[in-house]
């Protein structure tokens, strides 16, 4: 795909989803990132730390759409086609590897068990770099997660990844 065509996917929506934050996946995730704080397991501990419900570890939002994602409550106005497949499909067909370049979270209020959040991911940048005879094609997506009840913006996640030929 030429550079101009690569840039044409900027602004397009990748996915939209609604997720329910559940205690089991949160506690299990805390174990996986070596966090033994009882605040992620025990409601009493969470309350003592000033929360109304069990909070999530800071990187849980990256994976939360893999849990508590139920078909019956997904948004109906899903984006048509996936611009990432259009960009990366032809590259992957020629081989190479996809790697995570950078990750950023902005937290507006803590995500807690019981939250129902709606997120939409949009491509905010793409660019290419050459290094040691390899082409790296970068994509940056931004996902804004909102409280499904109040519409309040809870969290923004920026995911920078690249295909390396």
């Amino acid at each position: 795909m030429p550079e101009a065509a690569t840039k044409s996917i900027i602004g397009r929506s990748v996915t939209k989803s609604k997720v329910v934050i559940e205690r089991g996946p949160v506690s299990n995730f805390a174990v996986a990132v070596c966090d033994s704080d009882p605040v992620y397991r025990d409601l009493e501990a969470a309350r003592e730390a000033g929360f109304d419900a069990i909070p999530v570890p800071p990187t849980f939002p990256f994976v939360m759409s893999n849990w508590g994602h139920f078909p019956e409550n997904q948004p109906v106005d899903l984006p048509s086609g996936n611009p990432l497949d259009e960009l990366l499909g032809p590259l992957m067909a020629k081989g190479g590897i996809i790697l995570h370049g950078e990750q950023e979270f902005e937290y507006h209020r803590p995500v807690v068990v019981g939250d129902v959040l709606t997120g939409e991911s949009i491509i905010i940048d793409t660019y290419r770099k050459e290094s040691k005879g390899r082409t790296m094609t970068f994509v940056v997506t931004e996902t804004v997660w909102k409280d499904d009840t109040t519409g309040e913006s809870i969290l923004t996640s920026r995911f920078n990844f690249f295909h390396r030929s």
């Binding site: 996986a32 990132v33 070596c34 966090d35 704080d37 605040v39 992620y40 730390a49 000033g50 929360f51 909070p55 570890p57 800071p58 990187t59 990256f62 994976v63 790697l99 995570h100 950078e102 990750q103 950023e104 979270f105 902005e106 937290y107 507006h108 803590p110």
Partner: peptide, 26 residues
């Protein structure tokens, strides 16, 4: 990569407390 960021996140929240981060970038 996200395991590494997760481990760093654990050290951060051990220090500042859960729910205190407003931004985390790596």
């Amino acid at each position: 990569g996200m395991f590494s960021m997760g481990l760093l996140g654990t050290a951060l929240t051990d220090y500042v407390g859960p729910g205190r981060l407003t931004r985390f970038r790596v």
